[in-house]
Write a protein that binds this DNA or RNA. Structure first.
Lengths: 188, 188, 188, 188
DNA sequence: AATTAAACGAGACGGTACGTCTCGTCTTATT
DNA sequence: AATAAGACGAGACGTACCGTCTCGTTTAATT
């Protein structure tokens, strides 16, 4: 039971303004040009109001991910009936996140954020590996679940991240190859 | 034809002192506490001497990786005769890189460096996925080479990186499961 | 005619807690480390309770002076029969106010408070130049009163303040010399 | 003998810009609205450049006083032949320093600065009590010098400061009375 | 007794300034 | 010409207070 306390209550308007500002700046300039001061300025908020609720910029971003503000609808897989091509298409979409107009690319920024903040790391993986992927992947692998499925999901997404980090190109054929390597070759 | 030039030539002593200092600070405090100023101080070198030869701290680290100063002998796989357990052991070793005494863990720092610097990203993957891994993996997969082998290598290493980023635990059994998922189940 | 009003009246307990806290912090850390927030914290009082009754920290201190909490019994002169040495002793006592264990010295703090707040300035002079000094000084000067006496009193106290501000030393002999300069030389 | 050092030398342009800015802001807004940040902004200088050479705003102001930028020609006494009226006129001029267009008055600010900074206190007294006053005062008192003269000078200036602090009015007649009290009555 | 309204404690809010740290550039004297 | 040293303008860091503004609770005088 929470002990009641008098006094003003946390301002939801400020919270939203901060997350909005953080997301906008993150998209525009990337994670490591993101500053607490910049967020406060853009949000029209005192710095202390950010520090009061989040210990670091990483945790602000983590909360934004949790609310689905950074990945948008990228979490949902297409459904053409062919799980193999659906998975490849979704991975390609994830991969191309890395190229954003200015800044270092959203995917690199997410990875940088994850590297710097435990909470962001946890949430990023949880978001990306959300239900839709697991479900479809499980189907494609003949109903596998548990650690075996987790390993496959991590391998799929991890490979994409690794190639994005290395600035390797990754064509549609490569993506199909990757899916096959993990899901198994197409059955005739 | 090289145009002749008078005056002193680049100081190898300074170059080494800078790389040594960068590596030491990187290991002690992690990538994002690493500063140009700190490197110069520790190396006993003017800041300009760093800026003259490297555009950013990411590129200093990239050169250190290239010279094998950051991963040490972690590039070499054990050889017990059983490729499956050798690969799992090597991946576990890579994964445990993430826990360093202080700072954020070497693996997180390497990932942060890779996210922030194209050159570091390229070199990091090239280093980790060096010949030893490819060779052994190829053997374990029955002589596969080319894009098919690359996909498997990326999946293996990518999965480890993703779990490290998410601060997920990753036991020896999980690692074997992962290897099996990609290499294929153990043949009797 | 006061318009009648329901509701609680001003809390004397809060008023005293605030003045106590202000005096304690003033003595410990000096006028310019004194903060409204610190007073509220120490007094166990909401900030608004201070702002409701005083417009600034200077006015809180002014009220504390008015109630004799800052100068204590320093307002009273010794009485040895010899007005000349009594005055010198009292001035020396005032001067040594300037050396307090920590902080900038009570006298400097009082002067800073007076410089920053009109009300404090008025009260400080009124307090220091209170009846006892005027009476004794008048006697020593052969019954002079009015502007002539005021000028002498201001000269005496002002000289001490000026030397305190300049961190000049001021020995007992100097103090006698000062008294003589204003009161006139000792009559045989 | 100073040990030789390579590297850039202190920028005189920056030093002057800082002192100019400090003096301007001091005059416009008073000592306690004076901020390091404001000085840096106005001077077009990094904050570190101020902190590199002065530990506090008090010391910046102290240096400005030392260079005669704050009191201007107020240090010089008029010379009408009558020392008594010259002294009174000069004291009146000093007193009216306290009324500046906006802010708290230059004299209050100087006193606040002196209360907060030992160096400023020392320099302020040295500046105000400079040679011209001492010389004229000595003449008016029949050639007195040494501690006896110092006491008189401190009494004169101290009385003016005390009345300024207390926001007491101080007319020309009062000033003559003060001079007489210390210098002695006019000889016929 | 019930109503009403202000005083209270607590503390969140948008701000400003603090003093420190690092950035990348520029200026010295030395080698 | 490259170096070690480090001053410079710039600006972010995380903290401390400012003065204002809710909150929910407590306390009186008025109904």
């Amino acid at each position: 039971m929470a002990l009641p306390r008098s006094g003003p209550v946390r301002s939801e308007a400020a919270r939203l303004a901060i997350l909005d500002a953080a997301v906008a700046l993150f998209a525009e300039r990337g994670y490591d040009h993101l500053t607490m001061e910049g967020i406060a300025r853009r949000a029209g908020v005192g710095k202390q109001t950010i520090y009061r609720w989040w210990p670091s910029k990483g945790d602000v971003i983590a909360e934004a991910i949790l609310e689905g503000r950074l990945l948008g609808n990228r979490r949902e897989l297409p459904d053409t009936g062919d799980a193999r091509t659906d998975l490849a298409a979704w991975l390609t979409d994830l991969f191309t996140l890395r190229a954003s107009p200015e800044g270092e690319g959203l995917l690199h920024s997410l990875v940088a954020a994850a590297a710097g903040s435990a909470e962001t790391g946890r949430r990023l993986r949880a978001e990306i590996l959300a239900a839709p992927l697991n479900e479809r992947l499980s189907q494609a692998m003949g109903g596998v679940t548990g650690p075996r499925l987790d390993a496959a999901a991590d391998a799929l997404v991890g490979a994409v991240i690794l190639r994005a980090l290395s600035r390797e190109e990754f064509g549609g054929d490569d993506m199909l190859l990757l899916v096959d390597a993990i899901v198994g070759p197409p059955r005739h």
